[in-house]
């Protein structure tokens, strides 16, 4: 709480909002990238880009949607830069989402995490935003820059595909199929496991933060 007469520092307010959102940012990033280290790199890039762009954020508007949008844009931007597609590397797959094996009403969480990485990126992000992070349809539409109907459609298709993979006839159906490629809007094709994602030249985070 500020003392009477003490001016509120907008940078401090922004910083506090950023800190409060970091756990969710890391979780969204992990779901997008499917790899802990890559996800944390993306989360740090997002953090720094948001800080550099803080003047463009209007206090009182949806900070979470604004941050997720920056992360999402950075994610796709990096994919486009590293447009070389890669195969589903079993070792990488094993590192996906380090979640203790657990059952949710008969569904293994680890299976869901792995199946999630096989979905087209747009369906995956929709499931992550709404199903994991609890965004509303209109918040998700704002983050993804699309109509609410598109969000609902992606959500429905993503959930159906996820359920089909999990409930498939063979226990190992998730891993027996050949590596698939996800469609990324505007004709871009990307792999579900981006082993080279975020391996662009190291971002000069200090340079960004100095702004």
């Amino acid at each position: 709480m500020t003392r009477a007469g003490e001016a509120i520092d907008p940078d401090k307010v922004f910083r506090d909002q950023l800190v409060a959102l970091l756990p969710s940012l890391r979780a969204f990033s992990r779901g997008l990238c499917g790899h802990r280290e890559m996800a944390d790199d993306l989360a740090q890039d997002t953090m720094m880009r948001a800080w550099a762009a803080r003047a463009s954020y209007t206090q009182g508007t949806n900070f979470r949607a604004w941050m997720f949008m920056i992360m999402r844009n950075q994610f796709y931007s990096t994919i486009r830069k590293n447009s070389r597609t890669t195969s589903l590397d079993p070792e990488v797959a094993e590192r996906i989402l380090v979640v203790a094996p657990a059952q949710q009403n008969g569904i293994n969480v680890d299976d869901v995490a792995k199946a999630l990485q096989k979905l087209p990126a747009e369906q995956r992000e929709t499931l992550l935003l709404i199903g994991a992070n609890g965004l509303s349809y209109d918040e998700a539409a704002e983050v993804m820059g699309c109509a609410m109907g598109t969000v609902k459609s992606r959500l429905a298709r993503g959930r159906s595909a996820l359920a089909a993979m999990i409930d498939g006839p063979a226990d190992n159906a998730l891993f027996d199929s050949p590596p698939q490629k996800a469609k990324l809007g505007e004709g871009h094709e990307v792999a579900h496991i981006f082993s080279d994602i975020l391996r662009e030249p190291p971002t000069a985070k200090s340079a960004i933060i100095a702004s």
Binding site: L22, P23, S24, R26, A27, F28, R30, G31, D40, A43, Q44, M47, M48, L97, V98, V99, A100, A102, Q104, N105, G106, I107, V109, V112, A113, L116, L127, L128, G131, A132, N133, G134, R159, L162, A163, I166, K205, I209
Partner: peptide
């Protein structure tokens, strides 16, 4: 169950201790 699994995945990461790199930034 799928929503519950997604939420559990989210919570597992969100409840991790913040890595040192983040604290440094």
């Amino acid at each position: 169950p799928i929503a519950a699994a997604l939420k559990q995945m989210h919570d597992a990461v969100a409840n991790e201790e913040l890595p040192a790199d983040f604290l440094k930034l």
